[in-house]
Computed example of a mutant assay.
Amino acid sequence: MIRHLRSRVLSLLRFPSHLPAAHLAPLHSLLSTTASIPPKSFSVKDFLVTDCGLTREQAIKTTKRVSYPTSLSRPTAALAFLSARGVPRSAIAAAVAADPRILSASVGRVLAPRFAELTEIGLSPSQIVDILTIRRTASLRGNLLFWIQTLGTYHKILVLAKCNCDLLRASLDKVIKPNLNTLRECGVSASDIAGGGRYSSRLFTVKREVLMGAIARVEQLGVERGSGVFPRALAALSFLSKDILDGKIQLLRKLGFSQDELVMILKKAPQVLALSEKKIQRAVEFLMRDVSLQAPYIARRPALIMYSLEKRLMPRHSLLEVLRHKGLLGVEWDYFTIAVMTEKKFVHKFVDPYKSSFPGLADDYASACLGKA
């Protein structure tokens, strides 16, 4: 009985075999059309604003970096996972703006395992999201633990990793530890390099021949291993070619510095050679021509070359010239003393006391520091 009923139902569901092709065509056409109807459309931009918390401007920029999914199922799942793990909405928005690929990460294969292992080493949900926007590799946990032990603070690691993502993926045994050993032989610690500049952390992950070449270039400039200035010189000059360094040394010679004065500059502030030739030339010409400083004076105080010409050196010199012309500057100050003052102290000594006798002085000086006068 049941078998007979099943057979009867199936026969009713089948197309009648006796129908002519003309009658079947419209039906096949209808089924074909229905199958090709696309799923309900959605707006990635609206999702980024409404669900992820991005601003409209951020969403427009981020949408350009999103490979459009066929549905929002995976982004919605990723977002729900992050929220459930206690990641603040602001941190989610910042992470998505930094790397929208986090929304396409599989919860089961990527997000859940990463959160589990990184929570074990003490990272907060917000810190984990920050790290995941930089790198998602198998070596992540091991490298993070190593750098936390080596450098001490998570924030420092995050800053370095944003400049050098290889920090969290390069082999500890084959690359990072050998490079650190080489640096220690030169009297350079990991902290020296970490605090030496935005890109200096690449010294931790470069090929050995690149690191040895950088060390050799610094030594050729007369900076000795083990000296206090060697770490700063290595951080500043390691990725400049020999031709570029030679060109900047030749420029300093043309500007009037003797060989002894060049050596003095390199030993006191090798970072000068990391500046552009245009910056070096404009600063030195201003100091010699407008301030009337001599090469030996500048060589003993090479930090003068590194200060901002537009925002510090020129505005302060111009203000002192005005005060001197008005007879308001009672004592002549050493220029380097003037240049190294904090902005707050400079204003307190040379702007505030003359506000009443020289109306507009403060506004004029502020405008000059902004490059408007």
Rank of each mutant, 00 (worst) to 15 (best):
R114K: 12
A95S: 14
I121W: 09
R109V: 12
R89P: 07
R109H: 13
A91F: 05
A98H: 11
S106H: 09
P113Y: 07
T119D: 08
V96C: 03
R89A: 13
S104R: 11
A94C: 04
A93T: 04
I92R: 01
I102R: 04
L111G: 00
R109C: 06
A93G: 05
P88D: 09
A94K: 12
E117Y: 08
A112P: 02
A116H: 14
S106F: 12
S104Y: 10
S104E: 13
L118H: 03
A97K: 11
A112L: 14
V87S: 02
V110Q: 12
A98K: 12
L111C: 03
V87K: 01
V96W: 00
A105P: 00
V110E: 11
T119S: 15
R101P: 00
D99C: 13
R109I: 10
A98Q: 13
D99N: 15
A91V: 06
I102K: 04
P100L: 01
V96E: 00
L111W: 01
I102P: 01
A98P: 03
R89D: 12
A91S: 15
A91N: 09
L103M: 08
E120V: 14
T119W: 00
V87T: 05
E120K: 15
R109K: 14
A98R: 15
I92S: 01
R101W: 05
E120T: 15
R114Y: 08
I121L: 15
G108K: 15
L118C: 03
D99Y: 10
A116V: 10
V96H: 00
P88I: 08
P88K: 05
I92C: 04
V96Q: 00
A93D: 04
A93W: 04
P88F: 08
L111R: 00
A95N: 02
S90D: 12
V107N: 02
L111P: 00
S90N: 10
L111T: 01
I102G: 04
L103V: 07
L103I: 06
A95C: 05
V107D: 04
R89M: 11
S106L: 10
V110A: 10
V87M: 05
R109A: 11
P88L: 06
A112M: 12
A105T: 02
P113H: 07
F115T: 03
S106R: 11
P113D: 07
V110F: 09
P113G: 05
P100G: 01
R101D: 13
A98W: 03
A97D: 13
A91Q: 08
L103T: 05
A95G: 15
V96L: 01
I92K: 02
I102D: 02
V110L: 11
I121E: 09
D99P: 04
S104I: 06
A98E: 14
V107M: 04
S90C: 06
R109Q: 12
S106I: 09
S90K: 13
S90R: 13
L103G: 03
F115D: 02
A97P: 07
P113T: 06
A91K: 07
F115Y: 13
V107S: 02
S106D: 13
R114A: 11
A94I: 04
L103W: 05
P113R: 07
V110H: 13
V96S: 01
A116Q: 14
